[in-house]
Design a protein around this nucleic acid. Sequence first.
DNA 1: CTGAAAGCGCTTACAG
DNA 2: CTGAAAGCGCTTACAG
Lengths: 339, 339
Amino acid sequence: MAITIKDVAKQAEVSPATVSRVIADNPRISEKTKQKVRETMERLGYYPNFQARNLVAQKTRTIGIIMANSTTLAFQNPFFPEVLRGISVSAHHSQYGLYLSTGATEEEIYDEVVAMHQGKQVDGIILLYSRVGDRIMDYLMESGLPFSVVGRPHTNADAVSYVDNDNVGITKHVMSYLVGLGHKRIAFIAGGMDFVVSLDRLKGYEESLDESGITFDAQYIVNQDDMQKDGKQAIGRLFELAEPPTAIVTHDDLVAYEVIGYLEDLQIRVPEDVSIIGFNNHALSKHLKPPLCSVDICIYELGFEAANLLLEKITDEKAAPRQITVSSRLIERGSCQGR
Amino acid sequence: MAITIKDVAKQAEVSPATVSRVIADNPRISEKTKQKVRETMERLGYYPNFQARNLVAQKTRTIGIIMANSTTLAFQNPFFPEVLRGISVSAHHSQYGLYLSTGATEEEIYDEVVAMHQGKQVDGIILLYSRVGDRIMDYLMESGLPFSVVGRPHTNADAVSYVDNDNVGITKHVMSYLVGLGHKRIAFIAGGMDFVVSLDRLKGYEESLDESGITFDAQYIVNQDDMQKDGKQAIGRLFELAEPPTAIVTHDDLVAYEVIGYLEDLQIRVPEDVSIIGFNNHALSKHLKPPLCSVDICIYELGFEAANLLLEKITDEKAAPRQITVSSRLIERGSCQGR
DNA sequence: CTGAAAGCGCTTACAG
DNA sequence: CTGAAAGCGCTTACAG
């Protein structure tokens, strides 16, 4: 089949061991021999077989990436490609490859993680999400396989290397911005409550109300399920309340766009009647009319740093777990107005 | 380290070869022995080492995915995650893993393709794009490595397995829809002209004009560079023409959204003054005001079928190249109006 | 400075 | 029905 180290050895009239050492640029090999061997490799078009090399080296130079099972909207969401781009740059820089999970259900994904680990397919894993009571996280903790997480683990966070935004803090900032504009009835369109990021943001929401002396009212919370089942109805209900909200915070710009559509149907004007803020600062948000106020959570950096953390653990077995907080900031645009 | 086939063999008091055969469920092994070995594997927590297995099997059960170097907008675009989802489902079904390119420049990507092939890291490759005079495509053609392409190759298409929409046809359909509505001056916001898909759509545009007896006017064509450099100016120029367009076809919904933003700045109403159509039928397009008319190109199917084609070639060395045309359809919505 | 040998963890003809 | 041996393509102590 392909040219092996043996073929090169024979042609160059040295032993396979010597060829291997030339590839590794071992200093104990004479320059003369190196020249000869390299020339032969060149001539024969030799290329090392990574599988064989990895088998003896007991490593793969590959990172496994585990993504949550893909609901349609999650996939339309630019989070995934952007975080992947960040990971990609870091991995490529350190000459690591990327291996992707393909499972659709939690069960399948779990099996893949086990296969990646036990089957020695990857040197470490990046978990692209953090959810409450996640079997996969538990498995990783016990496995001894290096891993890092995008998002704060719900339990045992100190023992894990992860990147995250200050979700409580940024949400409080968003809220105090709205309160500062004179809003008191603020609706909150939350992400899935099994995700820690959603819990943190809800916590920020509640703490902020508390500090502003506004009573929490569960009627202003719209959960993910209601939104997905019938978004139009969920938004409609908000505005049938005796005291409808004057501002809406959504967990994602795309959701904000959708909400804006429903508001137009209801003849509710943005920002005159209702202010609205999204998260993730989608590329289009600045082009909307009015431009959408949004929180930039620096998705690229989240990916980039998650990969860095993982590579740190892979390189140094006993590196202590580290946590990185990636900055986030509110971008004020026309979709919010004082009252 | 980990449990190997030898450990199992020793414990079960059989030879490693027998354990291997039990794993492969070889019918020549007695049920009794199988029971005993399986029990031991279970007890010891044995898991096969894929690297070792792949080395002897001379295959990897892994598919390499090559994406074009990621300009920011390309990554915001839902095309990538959606096509990946399609690939993912097919690959997972056949128990293949996904290995992703990480290179940023064409040079880096080329090197990765060579490494994937020569280093025996993948059994085949899916090229997620087709561009004119692409070195990577040339390399793949000569390599003998199974591959498939999303998009019609610019040359030697018959020799390649690929999936594509009928881009000429669907664009003609879009155009005749607009012409049927009474439009004669139709602008065309094109994708990058190094991509075959863009060439095909432009061809459809021109052919349609021709058939409708409308003279082609290059002033109505906005190319990718102008759009990226200063989209607002590019659109502004269209409407400074003595005869400004009454309809705009854009190569992507996100670009359409952007254009709509500029039109609002120019006090040009959609659809009253100008009709607009996008491609890719983004999840949000139906929520826009007015809802955006768009072409659904079935991105998921493109990915799914590209993976199927590749797996066909991997499984059967001498499978003839096959081409699959994935359907596409115009979804009429409020952003277009007769005149 | 270089080579022969053993081994990474598996599979698969070849024997019996 | 099962085992001993060779081999996938590489690396790395151990000798010399």
